[in-house]
Design a protein around this nucleic acid. Structure first.
Length: 518
RNA sequence: GGCUCCUUAGCUCAGUUGGUUAGAGCACGGGAAUCAUAAUCCCGGUGUCCCCAGUUCGAGUCUGGGAGGAGCCA
């Protein structure tokens, strides 16, 4: 038995101070769909998400709430842990940067970077914004209403002057460029890759990676007046999760380096430039792929605090259904692009693609079998050219979808699946089994068998995106639990004639809520 | 200010190395069918392919300029 090939995929860790909205759910959902696909495809998957709990802002929020920072984090990180059951995520763990193991990992990688001569003590003077967690140049600042200095994003900025440890990022330019060159798909989409390339090709400055002005974070080893810069701390979670610093650990040896770091486009630079440089400096392999996805707007408008138009994932799931929500977010826009959420688009997708095309296909076929074949999987006769014209594309579908998932083109993998759904609906019409019932019952049985077998393929392949509905479809085809992976998409997994099927029930209802409610 | 990407049917987008009448889905109109969640199937039109100029026998596809949009950096 060949050992399953490992696959490690991560979401960013989310900032505990935020309230989860569809943007967070979207990132994790994309990873979930890919992780489920890989598991069904026989890969040994590690899928991680978590929360980023350090930094001055968190400490300030905790103080405002009148509790200590850890108690505060315990409370608010729950909001993100709750996304897993709500969205049916299949993450293999949930990491928090306040865990003891994470402190150890951060200090270990720091020490490794010190040992390779890439960290040095100097002093930092400049404008810093607590809210943005970022430093700014004098020329980037804007004047606030009372003449105070503000960051370009309108956050208060203060002049800070303090000792700081620096990372020799400037020394890593060529090695980073070589790393990008090794794989044309290193950073996707390509437009994002170009951005990173132009950033790194420009003048790379050394990076300040510690602060002395607050203490809610990971202390620098050997100099605990210094707290690690929050990004240094946060990025290291990807290592912590697989057992670092124990590089002999089975988990670390199996899963590192990560196959995909999924990130929002706003944090690409940290992942595509700083992080690989940190890792290489510490003698560790950099990630194989960084994918930056886009943002959702809502009814054409940006989500923002001032508009208060954040959509809590819970609201979408409640209103449209869980699998419907999952499908919409993965299908509506090319993965990587920005996209717009609208009630109309949501209802269109859920009614056209799910209810009318896929759901109704299963329902019409299963009903005919239920009524005309005594509720048993029918016995096929000799297959015709028409049958092959449907069966062959269904059997080739898994390869087509895999090729697309490999480059995170989730929307295209779904489009391929729906192509076959369309073929199947056309086949139903041209074969007209309801007419065959009177003229040629044996041929009717063959047609219904072919359809049931194609639906088996479709349901198995739809599991990553609509796990519950696909499972119900497979239940209705009496497909055993252990026959639902992609390995069953062969002749050996074919439906057995004579198997009793339960009475069919629709799995994708049409939208039944209020008509105009946007 | 520098750089990157985008601008194609009402909407969302495909358009490979330049080559005959520019495509898909949704929406819309007509027809067929009646197994099914009134779902399905067939047929149909619309496009100054952002604008201008150039290269070419020939450009949505290449070059230059311009307009609008998004983003990265200073």
């Amino acid at each position: 038995m060949a050992e399953a090939e490992a696959y490690y995929i991560t979401t960013p860790i989310y900032y505990v101070n935020d309230k989860p909205h569809i943007g967070h759910a979207y990132t994790t959902l994309a990873c979930d769909v890919i992780a489920r696909f890989m598991r069904l495809d026989g890969r040994d998957v590690m899928f991680m998400t978590g929360t980023d709990e350090h930094g001055q802002k968190v400490a300030q929020s905790a103080e405002a709430a009148g509790i200590d920072p850890l108690a505060f984090c315990d409370r608010v990180s729950q909001n993100f842990r709750d996304l897993t059951p709500l969205m049916n995520f299949s993450n293999d763990g949930f990491i928090r940067t306040t865990e003891e193991r994470h402190t150890k990992a951060c200090q270990a990688i720091w020490q490794a970077m010190v040992d390779s001569g890439d960290i040095y003590l100097d002093s930092y003077a400049g404008w810093y914004s607590v809210r943005d967690e970022a430093f700014y140049g004098e020329d980037e600042l804007v004047d606030g209403p009372n003449g105070e200095k503000m960051s370009p994003f309108g956050a208060p900025a203060e002049w800070v002057e303090e000792p700081s440890y620096f990372f020799r990022l400037s020394q890593w330019r060529d090695r980073l460029l070589a790393y990008y060159d090794e794989d044309p798909n290193r950073i996707l989409p390509i437009s994002r890759r170009n951005e990173v390339l132009s950033f790194v090709k420009g003048e790379l400055r050394d990076l300040s990676i510690s602060r002395t002005s607050f203490d809610w974070g990971v202390p620098v080893p050997g100099d605990d007046k210094h707290i690690m810069y929050v990004w240094f701390d946060a990025l290291t979670n990807y290592l912590t999760a697989v057992g670092y610093p124990d590089t002999e650990d089975e988990s670390f040896k199996t899963y590192w380096p990560a196959d995909v770091h999924m990130v929002g486009k706003d944090i690409l630079r940290f992942h595509a430039a700083y992080w690989p440089a940190f890792l290489m400096s510490a003698g560790l392999a950099p990630p194989k792929r960084i994918f930056a996805h886009g943002w959702w707007t809502v009814e054409g408008q940006k989500m923002s605090k001032s508009l208060g138009n954040f959509i809590p994932p819970h609201d979408m799931v409640e209103k449209y259904g869980l699998d419907q929500t999952r499908y919409f977010m993965m299908r509506e826009l090319p993965f990587g692009n920005d996209g717009n959420f609208s009630h109309t688009a949501m209802v269109n997708r859920m009614n056209s693609d799910l209810a009318n095309d896929f759901g109704n296909l299963a329902q019409r076929v299963l009903s005919m079998i239920n009524k005309n074949c005594e509720g048993l999987v029918p016995s096929p006769g000799l297959l015709t050219v028409d049958d092959g014209a449907l069966l062959v594309p269904a059997r080739e579908l898994v390869d087509k979808m895999r090729a697309r998932i490999d480059v995170q083109a989730i929307h295209l993998s779904l489009a391929a699946l729906w192509d076959v759904v369309g073929e199947a609906n056309r086949y139903v019409d041209t074969q007209a089994p309801w007419a065959l019932k009177k003229t040629d019952p044996e041929r009717m049985a063959t047609v219904l068998y072919v359809l049931a077998e194609v639906i088996r393929h479709l349901a198995i392949l739809a599991q990553p995106v609509v796990p519950e509905a696909a499972a119900r479809m497979l239940d209705q085809l009496a497909v055993p639990e252990d026959q639902r992976s992609f390995a069953a998409l062969t002749e050996a997994g074919m439906l057995r004639p004579g198997t009793a099927l339960p009475k069919p029930q629709g799995v994708f209802p049409r939208y039944a809520g209020p008509e105009e409610d946007t």
